[in-house]
Amino acid sequence: MSKNKPLVEMIDIHKWFGRVYALQGVDFTVNHAEVVGLVGDNGAGKSTLMKILSGLYPPDKGEIYFDGKKVKFSSPKDAMNLGIETIYQDIAIAPLMNITRNVFMGRELERKIGPISFLDLRRMERESLNALRNLGLEIEDMKMPVENLSGGQRQGVVIARAMYFKSKLLILDEPTNNLSVKESLRVLEFIRELKNQNISSVFITHNLHHVYPVADKIVVLSHGKKVGEFRKEETSIEHITHLITLG
């Protein structure tokens, strides 16, 4: 890992969905310990760009470099193995499952009894509890179905999961959607905490008042093209709003 190279470089990414030209040659960079705000109108291509970065779709054209190395993902698992974790719009958890089982979904801790591997539920519970505490989330009962948590707490569980698995990049697709003001502020706190722990993040949202305070850099997409990329100091909410609405 070299500190001067960017963490992620996506170069000239194109994506078609049938006749919809969703991404038309987008360059996108994330540096180490950087919070990137990704904004743009509905259908601009934000989610598609991030789904490509998380291995859910292959790009039709374009290259991706991670930590300076060229990568090709054939599934989300490939991206996850490199440390790219994604929180999609409200789909990152199974509400009826308990907290522990959600935290370790797909990456269960195991313990051998004879020739068979069983879940190491005790360790899983302890580790989830610690992960939530590290994030400042005070929930004691790890057996509680996630359904019983508030929206902000749920996002907390997912973010704690990303931290626990030592992700290098966390993609958050509208994590503050449907959250109250207070809960949204909490999620913003979580994102700041990620940066403190040297984890970069991409934060997609329609709410510029959410992204502006936490982002280091803001990227604007419009109709599948990048129409702006600014360090936060160089721009203002009014300026970005103007860009989004005019394209």
Partner: peptide, 13 residues
């Protein structure tokens, strides 16, 4: 996970 939220399960590999 598959029955509870297929997309989440998929995203988790």
């Amino acid at each position: 996970s598959t029955g509870g939220k297929k997309d989440a399960a998929r995203a988790m590999g």
